[in-house]
Amino acid sequence: MDRTQTFIKDCLFTKCLEDPEKPFNENRFQDTLLLLPTDGGLTSRLQRQQRKSKLNLDNLQKVSQLESADKQLEKRDYQRINKNSKIALREYINNCKKNTKKCLKLAYENKITDKEDLLHYIEEKHPTIYESLPQYVDFVPMYKELWINYIKELLNITKNLKTFNGSLALLKLSMADYNGALLRVTKSKNKTLIGLQGIVIWDSQKFFIMIVKGNIIDEIKCIPKKGTVFQFEIPISDDDDSALRYSILGDRFKYRSVDRAGRKFKSRRCDDMLYYIQN
């Protein structure tokens, strides 16, 4: 092996190696075989644990019991709190939906057609379901006392509308907060949504989550912003009957209220909004 043939040395090695005498770089060889230390199965164990500790509402409470309350308020935990609140909201919505379904089933089985009768019945027989039922009445003050006053203050509405600046109001409305607003779906690609009306309890990026007053039971509905037009009214004064009417084009409104505040909106081609002008 040591004796390289002259042809190879002269013709091939000279071409591709710097030193034809030493075809192999000796630094490349090491005396001992190196082995990397292993973690003794730690990663697989961690992965298993992670899968087990996937968050839901039950073990969330355990975690919060373990940790003291003030520790959670620290800033470095912000991300985690944020994550948890998202999960909690999702769980709440799913829970409400599940319970309203159960209630409807109960109403059907017992042939109850009145709202109050049903509520009494559930309160007596199924107190756990009753506790987690969303009640429209609870949310009405959110609209009547909070949101109307907020929006009136924001737009500076007085009885005298002569000095009211419409375009400035539109700009402010595009940045306003709609949690607690009373919205009605007026036009939609999905015809079954038309006519729905409810109070917004959460304004997410792609959905308005509303509580809707029903004949028998109040429901929580997630209404997609895409392909839907929402209408709302701002009463000018309490004793008068007149109001200002505006609509939200859901297709151009797909941002969370936090992101919307400092946003510069842009007009786009509106070929997707043909449903808005067709009856």
Binding site: S174, L249, F265, K266
Partner: peptide
């Protein structure tokens, strides 16, 4: 409207949109 987000007027009945 303000950049096609919020529009004046509603859209419920016939001929109620912008």
């Amino acid at each position: 409207s303000h950049k096609q987000t919020i529009v004046t007027g509603g859209g419920s009945g016939d001929g109620d949109d912008v």
